[in-house]
Amino acid sequence: MSDWKSLEAKSFYGASARERAIGIVDEGTFTELAGPQNRMSSPHLPVLGEAVEWDDGCVTGVGLIGKHPVFVISQEGRFIGGAVGEVHGAKMVGAFVLARQMYDRIKEEHPDELAERLPAVVISFETGGVRLHEANAGLLAHAEVMDQIQESKGKFPVISLIGSKVGCFGGMGFVAAATDVIVMSDLGRLGLTGPEVIEQEMGKDEFDSADRSLVYRTTGGKHKYIMRDANYLVEDTLGDFHDQLTAIMDAPYDEIVKCRRIGSEELVDEQLALAELSVEMAPKDARDVWAYFGNEDVDQIPEMTTAEFLAVAKRR
């Protein structure tokens, strides 16, 4: 499949949800589940006079990385900003349900090969969180996904990929934080409150949402890597994300879960200490935090290539 090979060279940032779903697993292994041919679109959008997509802006399916069955959730920012409604949210939950069933089946049928066949859920985020046209259903779906992440603990890894145009914001920002591993590119953005809302709350002098470089410094891949909120920073191609996933899945589960930043009392203590440090440090800009953690020439960091940055970055 030369298609897949050309996909691997493609920019992750510009790739569609379906291209990402196909390209992050091994060649020719992706099967879409509840795909567009099923026409499982939102029943709520037409009521408000909005157009639907047959996949509801969320591509779900299964592929392989080595022998690992990988259940993929890939969000499409071109459809209502990748926002989560009832169907989109149910597809996310469905991927977790299948991964758990697969885990139980492998444990039963291949008990000696659980490690090399361990399933995973991989989420390629491109979303601002709840879809306002069906906000209540979208909100409830977020709670279900958080429940499913907790349910996965101790069984199989849940991995976030963030490098698409819309970034990962709103409620999906904490869904990503709750996963075991976060892989970002320099172009990825991760946060809770979107830039416009921060500006509205704090004033334009404090946070100008139109200042793209400020937004990147606060939420972008390099900042999250320094903060250890992103575990890996990779180049912006589907192939680089695929390779990183392969490397993660090669590691034993006990090693993988060391990437977590929250999810236990010890990690809460660590994060609370960081919150106290934020008071002491009172940074005016993310650059102050980079300098605090030992980075020199912080003005140059946004200009660096990923390779240059990784060679010199000092992390929390």
């Binding site: 990503a176 934080a177 991760l190 809770l192 409150t193 939420t219 903060m227 930043r261 994060q271 934020s278």
Partner: peptide
């Protein structure tokens, strides 16, 4: 802003 820099999502 501080909340986003330090990760309110976490």
């Amino acid at each position: 802003k501080i909340e986003e820099i330090f990760g309110m999502n976490k």
